[in-house]
């Protein structure tokens, strides 16, 4: 498959009061044309930092230490000036942000805010730009578009505002759409609608999409592939089915175990014990090892390579090494995997 965006050995660091924090530790990841890729991980694992770096939007104290971000023959990691980035932002890669309540300018009509993208990226002006904006409003499921065009963000509900934010992103006419926790701030009922909308738009405009979420449940609905992130590293990546029903990394097991669907009625949900590592310190071996009940000695010493599970499925855990003792996933998961695979085969 052809990849649109290719991240290679990316390391991102932040300077904080004289100390250095490593937020992204040697990540390599491809986004294929037209696919939707989900990046899953606990909050603080570096998901936002990773996608911000793709758009040159890292906070001022952050920088790319090494590695490449290849897009259309350019290495975005080498981009320095605003002029460089303006060729990418919006035009090629657009973003849907997390909190629709704060993502819109309170003093501009939503119409104008969408139109700003249209004018910038679609070479339209005046009446044409206006018509295009109305079309976009319709596309994201807003009614009475002429009236809504003239309204301000505070006259919209959270879900409606997120539709506007999505319209702004789509108005850029991008190749790649990044959605950073697009539904986290929304009610559960509205989440499903927004995910549906994003899926529809992705197909309509042939977008390659990156979904970021800490909620594995969301991913199942939208993603073709999943990358699981832990402490600034990707520890497992594969097709959605593969990661869901044939997970290999104990951290992925833990994530799946904490899905509400797997909890017994009345029992407390499974939650991962311990805390993520301190990113100010150098991490040796597998970052998850101290919280991992299946950890081997080598997990504390050497970083596991990506072991190939299938042509599309890779996991960074020494458990896949030929010399490793055979370890079975937890009982609940085995049942879940069985069921999932049976379902997938039918």
């Amino acid at each position: 498959m052809e990849s649109t965006l290719s991240i290679q050995n990316l390391v991102i660091k932040f300077k904080l009061r004289g100390q250095t924090l490593t937020a992204i530790r040697d990540i390599s990841l491809d986004l294929y044309k037209g696919e939707s890729l989900a990046i899953v991980g606990e909050s603080g694992s570096g998901k936002s930092v990773l996608v911000k770096s793709i758009m040159g939007l890292l906070d001022k104290n952050g920088y790319i230490d090494s590695g490449k971000i290849l897009y259309n023959g350019h290495d975005l990691a080498k981009f320095k000036t605003e002029k460089d980035w303006l060729k990418i932002r919006g035009k090629q890669i657009a973003m849907v942000t997390q909190d629709p309540m704060t993502s819109l300018n309170p003093l501009k009509t939503v119409g104008k805010q969408i139109e700003e993208s249209v004018v910038l990226h679609q070479n339209l002006k005046g009446k044409e730009a206006y018509e295009k904006t109305l079309q976009l409003l319709r596309d994201v499921g807003i009614h009475e578009v002429e009236r809504r065009y003239k309204q301000y963000p505070h006259e919209f509900s959270g879900g409606m505002r997120q539709r506007i934010v999505i319209a702004i992103a789509v108005a850029c006419n991008p190749d790649v759409l990044i959605c950073d926790e697009p539904t986290t701030a929304l009610d559960v009922t509205i989440q499903a609608q927004i995910l549906q909308l994003l899926t529809n738009l992705q197909q309509k405009y042939g977008l390659s999409t990156i979904y970021i979420t800490h909620d594995l449940g969301v991913v199942a609905k939208v993603a073709d592939r999943i990358a699981v992130m832990y402490a600034g590293d990707i520890i497992e990546v594969g097709k959605t089915d593969e990661v869901f029903f044939n997970a290999k990394h104990p951290y992925t097991w833990a994530l799946i175990s904490s899905l509400p669907q797997l909890g017994e009625k009345g029992e407390e949900l499974y939650s991962i014990k311990g805390t993520p590592p301190n990113l100010f310190k150098e991490i040796k071996g597998d970052a998850f090892a101290p919280r991992n009940q299946y950890a081997l000695k080598i997990d504390f010493v050497e970083r596991p390579p990506f072991f190939k599970v299938s042509d599309t499925h890779f996991a960074r855990t020494w458990l896949l090494d030929l010399k490793a003792p055979k370890v079975e996933p937890p009982k609940v998961l085995q049942a879940f995997f069985e069921e999932g695979r049976r379902y997938a085969n039918e």
Binding site: T97, T102, S103, L104, C172
Partner: peptide
Amino acid sequence: NKDYIKLARAKGVKERTIMFRHVLRNAFI
């Protein structure tokens, strides 16, 4: 530092345009 400025940047608006078109009026309130 507000989110809507980050979104404006992400959609490819120039920093100077952001200052005058988005920030100024909000700061004036």
